[in-house]
Design a protein around this nucleic acid. Structure first.
Lengths: 329, 329
DNA sequence: CTGTTAGCGCTTTCAT
DNA sequence: ATGAAAGCGCTAACAG
């Protein structure tokens, strides 16, 4: 129906040139107060809305940020998004979000699509290789990774190694002897967590034992119970790669008649909103997901606006939240 | 660093004109096989990637869809997004997602931003007025609402009235006498649910009693327990606007020493992934969130590609999932 | 201070 | 079957 208004028509209405309208609207250059007033009036009278793509084509900047997350059903990533939105708005950027659905191929497509539409990208929980990510990063199209450290690529991460060391040590302190680690996918986060776990156990003179989750979610946790079931001797504590798996595991153990924490303690990494609402409530190393999102946007915007500076990796720390699932003795 | 390759350079490399390259790449017009081959070779040799904004500016279409959701922390909306991604990809569209954070002002801004970047929008859980939404909808920039029926605006909804009638009737059938409804925000979905509830109770000769949640989430549910506590007589069943509220409520009731379902049954609308994992597990009317997302994209793409047709409202149905939280007698 | 003009990179008639 | 050229709507450098 009604075609969108173009800058030319606003200029005519205000009796000035398109260039002038552009300058007034963008505050690029101050004009006589009277002129500005006429322009603004014309704009609101005609309901003018600049064509975004013409603007981007002309300026080369979109003032939009892309975030690609591993899985939108995982509360870690949604909390991260929540954090990013706030900061992006403050800094004058729009966030464009996409869900990779744990699929590297789909992730690549989404990255290409978002990259063309934004000034920079945040990759949270990427399943691409270090190489692929490093290739993507450039000063004009910067990438910030969350939960992954790659040489030459700015990142925001949690000190997962220390977090894991602490969590395992906590269980050791509780007197656990047979502590199992249910590992996640073989990327940076899991590597660090596994390393921390192994070190803690070795320091305590205990034998590490690692089993891999079929998937880092509810289902993976449920399926893990079958493996546990066959273990001789049965572990007295399980550290789960994430809270989703822990929740699935606890539900399955309940079905099997195994009592948590009396027969086996269950702990995890994460910050699931229901961790404190379950029964037993879930002990975890709380990952500051939301804060990671805030910091990632801050870092990315910094790169966009001060391209010269070499950014330092941003590192955050997890906090132990003891709850019922490890209330032993 | 390295400037992106332009179509002109590809043309030169292939010994043809830019127009020809464009036609070959878009399949707009068939060229001599030899020519096409040369073009493709040049493209891959130079790693040419068309400038998206120039393309959009020129064609007027972006092949992108926008989805604005009420709250990304709410599993209903994340499941919906999951559904949308699948279908959009099949139909050749990119989904751009934004989280309104339950804030109408922010929602308006996001809508404006996404509208400029996409061919059409899906509004899931909008907090705008019917008027505002109706104004946004146009054949060239269609809107599809999810969970809201507005005259003249294509929509995908659940028959919430019937769902609610069924849920309340189920409790009546269980012998409940004092059934409370914890209402959500005063938009379409809640109106329908409340209407269904009232009708069911009146048919059964019982007195409806409605209390409003402070917010439709965990916190709102927790806070509601304080109100419940003061009620004389105490209800024997509570229907919650959504599962998040129900979970918060159950956690608080546990703290207060009220037993579910023995002293009070708790049921809700929703499809929270943990509903079956809680103890007691949560009875709910299962809302097909994911399916709603799939259908919304289907509807929107249809509008985009067959602009002439007047679309019928799409209606889905909820399914009762009885679980422990209503296991009475 | 304001207008003119030349792009930004691609698509698409319209000729040839 | 292919090339030339005119936009798409805006910004920015340069004149005046």
């Amino acid at each position: 129906m009604r075609k969108p208004v173009r800058i030319f028509e606003v200029a005519k209405e205000a009796g000035v040139s398109p260039g002038t309208v552009s300058k007034v609207l963008n505050g690029t250059q101050r004009m006589a107060a009277a002129t500005e007033a006429r322009v603004w009036k014309a704009v609101s009278k005609l309901g003018y809305q600049a064509n975004l793509h013409a603007q981007i084509l002309s300026t080369g900047r979109s003032r939009a940020l892309g975030i690609v997350i591993l899985d939108i059903l995982n509360p870690h990533f949604t909390a991260l998004v929540k954090g990013s939105g706030q900061v992006a708005t403050e800094r004058g950027y729009t966030v464009l979000l996409a869900d990779a659905e744990e699929n590297p191929k789909r992730e690549q497509e989404l990255i290409q699509s978002l990259r063309a539409r934004t000034d920079g990208l945040i990759l949270a929980g990427s399943r691409l290789t270090d190489q692929e990510i490093a290739c993507l990063h450039s000063p004009e199209q910067p990438i910030v990774t969350v939960g992954r450290r790659i040489a030459g690529v700015p990142s925001v991460t949690v000190d997962e190694y220390t977090a894991s060391l602490q969590l395992a040590s906590y269980l050791v302190g509780l007197g656990c002897q047979r502590i199992l680690y249910l590992a996640g996918p073989p990327f940076w986060v899991n590597q660090e967590r596994e390393r921390g776990y192994r070190n803690a156990l070795e320091q305590a003179g205990l034998t590490p034992q690692v089993l891999s989750l079929t998937s880092p979610d509810l289902l993976g946790g449920e399926q893990a119970s079958a493996l546990l079931w066959t273990m001789q001797p049965f572990p007295d504590a399980v550290i789960c790669y994430n809270d989703l798996a822990a929740i699935g595991l606890m539900a399955s153990l309940k079905t099997l008649g195994v009592r948590v924490p009396q027969e086996v303690a269950v702990v995890a990494f994460g910050n699931h909103p229901l961790a404190a609402h379950l029964s037993p409530s879930l002990t975890h190393m709380e990952i500051p997901s939301r804060r990671l999102g805030e910091l990632a946007v801050g870092l990315l915007v910094g790169l966009l606006e001060q391209p010269q500076e070499e950014p330092q990796p941003v590192i955050q720390y997890a906090v132990l939240r003891p709850r019922e699932s490890s209330r032993i003795g």
